[in-house]
Every structure is written in C-alpha cells, then in structure tokens.
C-alpha cells in the first residue's frame, strides 16, 4: 500500500492534476501567510515582554506558554464561535480568511513563547554589556533585534511546522470545501475516512517534501547568521 502511495504521489505531481496543485498552493499560502503575520506580532510582543518589567508579566508568560500547546481543534472551536457569534456580520466562516485567523492565532503563542524562552537569558547579558558600553534605550532595542535573529528564524520554523501540519482548526472553520478551503491536511483526513489510503500517502509525501524544502530554506538564513 505504501509503494502504491509513492507511485500515486508521483502520478499526481507529474500529471499536473489541477485540483492537487490548487490544494498545495492553498496550503502553502495559508501556512506562509499565517506564519508571516504571526511572526510580526510574535516577535514584537516576545521582545517587548522579555525586555520589560511590568505587573502581571509572570501570569502573561504562563498564559502564552499554555497557549503554545492548545489543541488546534479547541482554537478552531473558539474561532468558529466568534465567527457565528459576535463577528457573524463579517461572513468569514468557511473561507480562506477564517482559516487564516485560526492558524495565525495558533502560531502567535508558539513564536512569542519561543522568543521569550530562548532570548531572555541572552538578552540579560547583551543588555548588561550594551549598558556598560554606553548604549541608550534605542541602541539597546536595535541590538536586541539584531542579536535575536537566529531565535526569530527558529521560532518561524516552529510556527510554520505547526501551521502546515494543522488540521483540526482549519477543518472546523474552513469546512474542507472542494476548490475553496480544502488544504493538504484536510485532504488527507478526508481520504483516510473514505479508505483512500493511496491518495492520503501521496499527499502526505508531498506535504513532507514541501515542509523539508521550506525548512531547509528558512534554516539557511539561521545558519548564515552564525557563519
């Protein structure tokens, strides 16, 4: 069955099946866009939280770390309830926008939390050194962003991994509608439930290959920083 899946994967790719390519494109667009939006929010908030002292910081960090592990289906349910409740007028349910919101909300805590975890100790040393060398607040902020680059790329990689592999939330708020909101993971889930394992294996292999290529690309930036 696995061999048949591999053969099916090549057939789907090299017969340029329009539906398959649309699903791949939608998955990539959704995952990359949600990672980019979440990165902007997560990096700024992660650096702000780790470099400032304020009341409730410990509680906020605990909440972020809790949300790093939130089950996607719970996040999907939350977004679903929002879109059929207070934000019903936006008519976003079962659209790309709804999936983008759900995935972005899932990825934000992962990026924010990882930046806080990985940079707090480094930032303390870097800030102390910058202070003793005469840096002002603006200098220190620029320095922290520059020094946090490898952590930013690492967090983006983790965020993208979460986004591309996510199925529960996009299934709930996207509805897995053919030619509209069907992505690679929901395609696999649906084919599994229908017993079409060859198609699932094929799409799973394509998903792995794309994830590998994108991780390689993002990791290159991270490695360049150290060279």
């Amino acid at each position: 069955m696995i061999l048949e899946g591999i053969i099916e994967a090549f057939r789907l790719l090299f017969t340029f099946n329009k539906e398959i390519y649309e699903i791949i494109f939608l998955s990539l667009a959704l995952s990359l866009l949600s990672t980019i939006i979440a990165s902007v929010i997560g990096v700024v908030s992660g650096i702000a939280i780790s470099t400032n002292s304020f009341v409730g910081k410990k509680l906020l960090k605990k909440l972020i770390f809790t949300f790093m592990g939130i089950p996607p289906v719970v996040m999907g349910l939350f977004v679903l309830l929002m879109l059929i409740g207070p934000f019903d007028d936006l008519n976003l349910l079962f659209t790309f926008g709804a999936m983008l919101i759900a995935q972005t909300l899932l990825v934000i805590p992962i990026i924010t939390g990882n930046i806080i975890i990985s940079s707090e100790k480094t930032q303390k040393e870097v800030l102390e050194t910058a202070t003793t060398l005469g840096a002002n607040k603006k200098d220190k902020m620029y320095l922290i962003i520059a020094e946090t680059k490898p952590f930013i790329f690492m967090s983006m990689i983790l965020g993208f991994s979460r986004a591309i592999s996510e199925v529960g939330a996009v299934m709930l708020v996207g509805g897995n509608i053919r030619y509209k909101t069907r992505v690679m993971t929901t395609f696999i889930a649906q084919n599994n439930s229908m017993g079409e394992f060859e198609a699932s294996i094929a799409m799973g292999m394509i998903l792995l290959l794309l994830a590998f290529l994108i991780h390689t690309f993002l990791s290159k930036f991270r490695c360049d920083f150290y060279d």
Partner: peptide, 14 residues
C-alpha cells in the same frame, strides 16, 4: 564614565 568587563565575554553576532 565607567565601564565594566564581565568574566564571561559577551560578544555580539558580528
């Protein structure tokens, strides 16, 4: 006008 040099050098990524 004082500067402190720590036991463990903290160099920047440059």
């Amino acid at each position: 006008d004082v500067t402190y040099n720590s036991p463990k050098p903290v160099l920047f990524h440059r």
